[in-house]
Design a protein around this nucleic acid. Structure first.
Lengths: 337, 337
DNA sequence: GTGAAAGCGCTAACAG
DNA sequence: CTGTTAGCGCTTTCAC
């Protein structure tokens, strides 16, 4: 493995000159740069982040904490982060909390605390107070993507606004019997923002004089399969809502499946609207409140890198945009046609 | 940020002693160890991987290359890897090739080539010859998970065997008109192993004297939505297979959706079997060839770490296990009941 | 058991 | 435009 010193020796230059040439620092002559680059290529020189990092205190790596990778939202955010960071010359050090959850403690601090990363991006994770304290101790730029995490600056949509828009869409179509497939899952810490959404739903529905039976407030744990089960049960009963708001598209697809399986049709008998703008939503002809999740990750990545490199850290960010995408899964209820 | 030197000064010891105490090296007295640990905690000492790595040449980090994170298989493998690596004290440096694909070139070599990682795990990725050459240059332990990648040792199921088992299940039930929803997607490099599976399907079906119409060989690109579309089209035609093998559970769920939507019922009219053992398969009552994907990732992680730490590198690994899980989505065809 | 000293590969003043 | 000199924080012989 060639080092900067070997290149220097080879060329009869000093290490500093080689270092500068390699990094394209102004004050080096074009010929020297060419010489150094040629030698570096020939010797198959590979820079060492460790050495550079030790010297500068910069690792050129960002820690990304996710509660799990098995949800579209999380993996999309990570994709956006990763792509952006790659362009900026940073690496992603991944911390999947799914793993440690089983073990009881989630020691994400582990290598964050080994100064491996320059900053942290948190993706929609619920932390315990102890964990939050630990994170605060880190004392490096930190941004969360998705629903707000207390004490951490946040990039994401306004949960209440999104839910309100989704609910309102059904109301506007004429639905007065509406249900919610929410995400709250007491078993896990992986879900946040659930109650804000729930409130927005009830508020919007009630304001329009709609009926919201408590039994129509379902919990799908943000998982398609679970949503399918609970919705199937609901529609095998005697009364059911003509409109269903789902807190994620994955759950909405499960719900559509269940409604079909119950022998009813979407949107003829039941209208279903999701939230997210999942990559599958178009194929499933699902009406949804779409947001650019990858871009949210990318924005967080850009911001965090800017701060690492000295930019000021704003106190808060504008809520991310979302838009209602009307497709075939929603329609006026039967009676009002 | 406290360093080893400050602890040493604080205690009137030498850096070496502190270093040894911190790492639990034998030749240090218990009292010294206790003293050092106490001081380390008090001063909020945090070791620096960069410094340690510079000194030892070990980064305690493993590079993980994935073609995308938005598929259950990939993210599950990564979860398995991450959990295991965390236990072993290693970090995951993620390389999502999705990102660079857009840009035309996929520069995964970037920091692999900066000696940031000690080894590489590749998850079901198709590489160009140039990329493979670049990888080979890396000269560090490397293992792939999933379908075999040429030139890289592989952990995964035998694709042909799995497909054969799945097809045979339908044949055994009496199906003689069978179709395949495969994954081949000429647009992307993200899918491998597709043709092996296709062959195994045709071979098994033909051997049983089953009809395999060319138009029943569909391509779902390993995506649920796409599978839903192509299957819907198939079942809106005049003739269709009574049995459908899907190369992934995600596609199988899409297929079930489509069949329902076409007004047919699963398994009464059409039997559907998937491959993977997706977390949703039970909820969707999907028959599948299940494999422990997380464990495959974990196994790769363990092996790669062992090799980094000096263990011998076997030439090849046993194929991973899989098992047929029969659920409600498959049944004998109608006529033979 | 513990210490002293050298060095891992790079960057960063400070000179010239 | 280039070289010299110190480190960054840790590990590791080699001594004692």
């Amino acid at each position: 493995m060639a080092t900067i010193g070997q290149i220097a020796a080879e060329l009869g230059l000093s290490k500093s000159t080689v270092s500068r040439a390699l990094r394209g620092i102004p004050s080096i002559s074009q010929e020297t740069i060419a010489l150094v680059q040629e030698a570096a290529a020939r010797l198959e020189y590979v820079p060492s982040v460790a050495a550079a990092g030790l010297s500068t205190g910069r690792n050129h790596a960002i820690g990304v904490i996710v509660p799990s990778l098995n949800r579209w939202f999380y993996s999309s955010v990570v994709s956006g982060i990763d792509r952006t960071l790659a362009e900026l010359g940073y690496d992603v050090v991944l911390f999947d909390l799914d793993r440690s959850q089983a073990a009881g403690t989630r020691l994400f601090a582990r290598s964050l605390l080994r100064r491996r990363v320059d900053a942290v991006i948190v993706v929609a994770t619920v932390f315990t107070p102890e964990e939050l304290a630990e994170l605060a101790l880190l004392d490096m730029p930190m941004i969360s993507v998705g629903p707000p995490v207390s004490g951490i600056r946040n990039i994401g949509v306004n949960d209440a606004a999104v839910m309100t828009a989704a609910t309102k869409h059904l109301i506007d179509l004429g639905h007065r019997a509406v249900g919610l497939v929410g995400g709250y899952d007491p078993e896990s810490l992986t879900v946040i923002g659930a109650s804000e959404r729930e409130h927005a739903f009830t508020r919007t529905a009630s304001a329009a004089g709609a009926v919201v039976e408590p039994t129509w407030m379902l919990s799908g744990g943000y998982r398609s399969g679970v949503a399918k089960q609970v919705v199937l049960q609901l529609y095998q009963g005697l009364t059911w809502p003509t409109g269903l708001v789902c807190a994620s598209d994955e759950m909405a697809i499960g719900a559509m499946f269940a409604v079909q399986q119950a022998g009813l049709s979407v949107p003829h008998d039941v209208s279903i609207i999701g939230i997210d703008g999942h990559e599958y939503s178009a194929d499933y002809d699902l009406t949804t409140c779409s947001q650019d999740v990858q871009e949210q990750g990318a924005a967080a990545a850009r911001q965090v890198v800017a701060e690492v490199e000295g930019a000021p850290a704003p106190y808060a960010f504008e809520p991310a945009e979302f838009s209602l995408v009307v497709r075939g899964s929603t329609a006026p209820p039967r009676h009002s046609r």
